[in-house]
Structure formats: C-alpha cells, structure tokens
Design a protein around this nucleic acid. Structure first.
Length: 460
DNA sequence: ATCGGCTCGCGCAA
DNA sequence: TGCGCGAAGCCGAT
C-alpha cells in the first residue's frame, strides 16, 4: 500500500454497507484519474469487496466567483477524465447539482464513500455535509498535497520559514510514488443498475447549457485537462527548469511552469510533478521549483485551513494591519476605483499591461502578480478597499482564482507570510515595490512588448 | 556593481 | 533571555 495512513481519515462512524453495489469515489478537488490517492484507495477497497468503482462528479453552476472562463477549463478537464475512465476500468458520471447532494444521492447504493481533500471553506462544508449524512462509511483521502496538511502542522504558520523545516522533515515519508492497482471488476460488465457513463459530447453540451456567469470569456491560450498539463509539464522540464532558478522572475521571459491552473483544478498531481522534477536532476532549478511547488503551495493550504478569514482583510498578521492602519490617511499619489483598475486605466503602462494580460489570458507573470497587488494598495483609498479590489480581480480573471495560492498570494502583497521592512508612506512596514526596482532588474519594455504581441496574436 | 541598514516575531539554544 | 534569520524590497553610500 503506497497510500500512507496519514492521508486517510474516516469521516464518520458508519459501517460499510454490505448491500452496496459499488465503491463510490466522489471526485471534487482532484479532477484526474492519474496519480490520485483517493481514486486508488477506492480501487483497492473495491477489489477487496469485489465491487466496481463508480466515480461521480457533482457540477454546480453556482460556485462562488466562478465564471465561464473557469467552467470551460474545468469541463475540458472532465472530458479527459470521461475519455480515460474506460481504460482505467471505472465508470465516470457527471451530474449537475450541489456536489454534496449529488454525492449523497449516489451514496445510498454505495458500500462506502471515498472523497478527496479540499481546504477552502465551501469544500470543507461540502465534505462535512457528506460525512454527516452518508448512510455508509465515508473516508477522506489526501491527494492534493505532497505532505498531508493536518499532519505537517496543526496551527497557522507564521511564514514559509516556519513551515519549511516541518515539510522537509516528512518529505522522505510522503514524496514516494503512488502504485496504481488495476480494477478487478469493471462496472461495464455488471453495471446495468448504475447510471450510464457521461460522454465527452455530453460534457461539451453541458458547457453551453449551464446557467453560469458568462461575463468573462474562456482563455484563448490555456486549455484544461490532464493531457495538456502533462505536455506542458514535460516541455517545462526540458526547456525551462534548467534556468528556472536564475531567470524565472524576469517578466520579459515566460519561464514559469504554467501548471497553476491545472493544479488548482486537480488535473495534474503535485506528487507526480515533484517526483519527476526531483528525478530529472538535482539542479538548482529543480530545488527552486520544488520550493514553489511544495513549500509555498502547501503554506497556502496551511493558510486557508487554519485562518478562517483567509478571504478578508482581517486575515492579515497583526503587525501588518497595525502598520497599514497607521498609514491609512497618508496621501496617495493616485486614486483609482475598481472600474479604473478593471479596465486597465491607470497612469502606469506596466500595471496596465499586467491587467490586460490577466483579463485576456487568465494568467499573469508571477513576479508581476506581486507588483500588481502592491500598486493596488498604493492607489486605493484604504488598504481594506485595496484588498477587496485585488482579490475580486484575481478571482474573477485568474484561471487559478480562488485557489489557496490565490488567497495567500493576495495576502502576501499586504505583508502576510512576509517580514517588516523600513517604514514608509502608505505601506508602513509592509514591503514596498516600485517601477524603479523593476527597471533596475529587468528590461521592462521587453515585457510590455511580449504581452502586446501576445494580445495582437489573439486579435485583442 | 555591490553592500549594509532597515524591522518584527518565531523558534531554537542555552 | 539572546540570537539568527527570513519570497522576490528599497535606498543611499561606496
């Protein structure tokens, strides 16, 4: 068994239903059939019980802050799952509705319910509801973090520096491959009592029919799915990883992995990515990438898990709120409304370029995500308003909006997980960033040209 | 071009 | 209790 017991939590005290016709894997966060601990756990249990595996995904059209851009990426991923399900020997069914209700509906005829882990408020609420109302045993399996979130730390960490040693202490235990066991009983052989599998065509139809917020168009360049994620990843390892540690911050280049949206929707396994990077070489590029993928990503999981206010200004560390409050009345060099920001109508062509990249593609260069957030603080009436504006725009346009990384990333601009710096107007002791710093380190015009060209290529 | 100073809280060693 | 240290900072001095 390559699924460490620290990944597995029995969420209720119900017995296995002896009359259950299948083992139910309620897929929610980890939207993939490859390297998925929750799925493998379900397969192992099904083989022990001599039952088939039913994989069910509940699709709600009303996920908070999600719009057509996010739904398109998500459904592109579900199409990959639907197409691969027969090869994996499992039946995959998508139903429209609240995910917890969809799961409970199928739980009635299940021997046991297996679910993956998710740490946002709504994900925890869904899991709580399923665990409390499931008529049979309900097991949660961690498939989204390399080191299980609750195991590595049971409290809110102050910064990466405090989480890092804890993660590294347990890496040897958890950074190990996941064995994939074949399914013994394929549901197609005795599955008449089950719902028919959802087809790729049905999923495409669902995308046009779902009553989702259509105010933001799909990304013209980034498309979802495990297959695309794996292609993108192998290209990254080959071309970008060797120089990742020294050039990833240069916005004139595009040296990020681009995996964040795929990780957000669980379309690629962070464990698989980490093992591949660690295997390919032990170069400085690999070390720098693993720091991002494991330490920084899982710090954000720690943040949303242990800080109940992760999506509000009140989430910030005390020293940060105190120092920002002290400077709330400082005069601002410019003041913009949400609309000004959203329409990329500031005086700063660099900032406007960031915003245009975000709106058009659903991504922004990682370094510019910091600059972008810092400037919203500088040009808003209050830090509270700035926080709301930054999180709103981030979650509306970023393909990885509402990811734990998104919440931690916005909060970082306001001092969270960072340290104090010399006091100055508006920012107080929160780290300041400016255009001079960008120009000192990078060729800013090359960044603007790169984005302008990309916008032209899509006819924008 | 490079360097030190700035600043707070954590966690470890003592 | 003291001390080292930290996501990508800036700025002035050399």
């Amino acid at each position: 068994m390559t699924i460490q017991r620290e990944r597995i939590h029995e969420r209720n005290r119900m017995p296995i239903n002896p009359r259950g016709g299948y083992v139910l894997y309620w897929m929610q966060q980890s939207q993939r059939l490859h390297w998925n601990h929750a799925l493998e756990y379900a397969v192992q249990k099904a083989n022990e019980l001599r039952l088939p595996v039913l994989v069910v995904f509940g699709l709600t059209a009303h996920y908070p802050e999600a719009n057509l851009r996010h739904y398109t990426f998500l459904i592109e991923g579900l199409i990959d799952v639907a197409e691969d399900a027969p090869r994996r020997g499992v039946r995959f069914v998508v139903r429209e509705g609240s995910p917890a209700e969809v799961c409970l509906n199928f739980a009635k005829d299940a021997a046991l319910v297996v679910m993956d882990a998710g740490y946002l408020r709504i994900q925890r609420q869904w899991r709580e509801r399923v665990a409390e109302n499931s008529p049979c045993l309900c097991v949660e399996v961690e498939a989204d973090a390399v080191v299980p979130v609750w195991f590595v730390s049971s409290r809110e960490e102050y910064a990466a520096a405090t989480l890092r040693p804890k993660i590294h202490r347990y890496l040897r235990q958890f950074l190990i491959p996941l064995e994939q066991v074949p399914v013994a009983i394929c549901p197609t052989t005795r599955g008449d009592e089950l719902s028919p599998p959802t087809t790729a065509q049905e999923l495409r139809g669902l995308l046009t029919l779902l009553p989702v917020d259509r105010s933001v168009s799909p990304s013209p360049t980034a498309h979802g799915g495990t297959k695309r994620a794996l292609m993108l990843f192998s290209e990254f390892v080959e071309k970008k990883l060797p120089v990742y540690h020294e050039r990833r911050n240069d916005p004139a280049e595009d040296l990020g992995s681009g995996l964040s949206p795929y990780l957000h929707f669980g379309q690629i396994s962070p464990l698989y990515v980490a093992l591949e990077v660690a295997r390919h070489n032990d170069s400085p590029g690999a070390a720098a990438f693993l720091e991002q993928l494991i330490v920084r990503r899982e710090l954000s999981f720690n943040f949303v898990t242990h800080n109940p206010r992760y999506d509000s200004y009140d989430c910030l560390a005390h020293w940060a709120r105190q120092t920002l409050a002290l400077h709330a009345a400082d005069p601002r060099p410019a003041l913009y409304t949400l609309e000004d920001f959203e329409l990329a109508q500031t005086h700063d062509p660099i900032w406007n370029t960031c915003q245009q990249e975000l709106v058009a593609f659903g991504t922004m260069h990682n370094y510019m995500r910091m600059y972008w957030g810092k400037k919203i603080i500088e040009w808003s009436r209050s830090p509270e308003e700035a926080f709301a504006v930054a999180l709103y725009l981030n979650n509306k346009y970023q393909l990885d909006g509402r990811d734990p990384n998104s919440f931690a990333g916005v909060a970082w601009c306001f001092g969270q997980h960072d340290r104090p710096w010399p006091e100055r107007p508006i920012f107080g002791k929160v780290r300041y960033m400016n255009e001079a710093g960008l120009r000192r380190k990078f060729d800013v015009q090359r960044y603007i040209n790169r984005i302008t060209q990309a916008l032209r290529n899509i006819g924008g």
